[in-house]
């Protein structure tokens, strides 16, 4: 492993080293002229410039953008409408019937995303926990089993979507298997409930290994002597799980839940490639709605898309703050130990 590590290090640092040698003389001069403060500025500048232009600035102008209307791309050319876009997004004549909403697509996407988040995250967490518990029992061949579950995590969402589109195809292998055992084939991606379930199943397939890994790290950090002590006391396995394993796993579990929520709220790539939002609007999620309204549809309305993205951003910020707070708490706990 050290060989690979060393090689990687060399591959990573060699081109940078070459660049560095070139820069040495002018930078020595700059250090003389501008001092240490000048060097700090130099080190920060590239990253902070890109960061400011492509992350901070968009964050700020997104708010302004959401208060404008029209097709013009650049903010100064756009017409100010105040809260108009938000009103359009949120107004319905009858809130019990989404079809009466002015922007019914948004509400459908919102409902779909909500349902998706609840179902996908809960199933994912249960599956990841079971997997982590099982992997934690394994002393032998652990890396093999870890690889089994982790392998899909690195695949691109497009690849994941296409793999499953091929399997769930009308003439796909899954239907062949169904026919083989004497059942009727199913139009997986063309029937509303099946397509929605497929979106949930495929995203779980792609993410399971990632979350199981974090939980496994948490399980492995639980001191073995606690279990030995429990065994000496004759504690029943179920009780050991509820009273020792779960409470000690809680910090990792909370992080996993929040991370899974954050990702589920943004669901797009896999589902988009798998179903394209269909059939109809059965798998239309918020991010796809923003994409369609902002970029893809014939009646582009970037202001509306910006307003929708800010609403989604609000949810994500709450979740992120929750995660940071949890992280802080874990850090403190870690220090106390």
């Amino acid at each position: 492993m050290t060989g690979v590590k060393g090689m990687l290090g060399a591959v990573v640092t060699a081109p940078l080293g070459w660049l560095a040698r070139l820069l040495d003389a002018p930078l020595r001069l700059w250090q003389r002229v501008a001092g240490q403060g000048g060097m700090v500025a130099f080190f920060l500048l590239p990253n902070m410039a890109i960061f400011t232009i492509f992350v901070l600035l968009p964050l700020v102008i997104n708010i302004a953008y959401s208060m404008t209307t029209g097709a013009a791309l650049f903010l100064p050319d756009r017409t100010y409408v105040g809260m108009g876009q938000y009103e359009r997004l949120l107004r319905c004549t009858d809130y019990t019937n989404l079809m009466t909403c002015q922007e019914d697509q948004f509400w459908i996407a919102l409902r779909n995303t909500g349902t998706f988040v609840v179902l996908q995250v809960s199933l994912l967490i249960v599956a990841a926990t079971i997997t982590a518990l099982i992997l934690n029992r394994a002393l032998r061949a652990l890396s093999f089993w870890r690889a089994v579950f982790f392998f899909p995590v690195l695949l691109s969402p497009v690849v994941v979507g296409l793999i499953w589109r091929w399997i769930l195809d009308r003439n796909g292998v899954l239907n062949a298997a169904l026919v083989g055992v004497g059942m009727d084939p199913v139009n997986w991606l063309l029937e509303r409930n099946y397509a929605f379930s497929a979106a949930i199943g495929v995203t779980i397939w792609a993410q399971l290994g990632f979350f199981a890994l974090i939980l496994l790290a948490g399980l492995q950090a639980i001191p073995r002597d606690l279990y030995e002590a429990a065994e000496m006391d004759g504690t029943k396995p179920a009780r050991v799980f509820w009273r020792i394993t779960l409470p000690l796993l809680m910090p990792n579990m909370l992080v996993v839940i929040v991370l899974a929520l954050i990702r589920a709220v943004q669901v797009f790539d896999e589902a988009y490639v798998l179903t394209g939002g269909g059939p109809g609007t059965a798998t239309l999620f918020l991010t796809q709605y923003i994409y369609e309204v902002g970029f893809a549809s014939l009646l582009k309305n970037p202001g509306l898309a910006a307003a929708a993205s800010i609403l989604m951003g609000g949810v994500l910020i709450v979740l992120t703050l929750l995660q940071l707070a949890l992280g802080k708490r874990n850090e403190r706990k870690g220090k106390l130990k």
Partner: peptide
């Protein structure tokens, strides 16, 4: 600032980012 933006996903800033990249 950096930690605060750790989790700001691309999907939240798509529209203005597009206008900047276009700019």
């Amino acid at each position: 600032l950096i930690i605060a933006t750790l989790m700001i996903p691309l999907s939240v800033i798509l529209v203005p980012l597009y206008s900047i990249v276009a700019g």
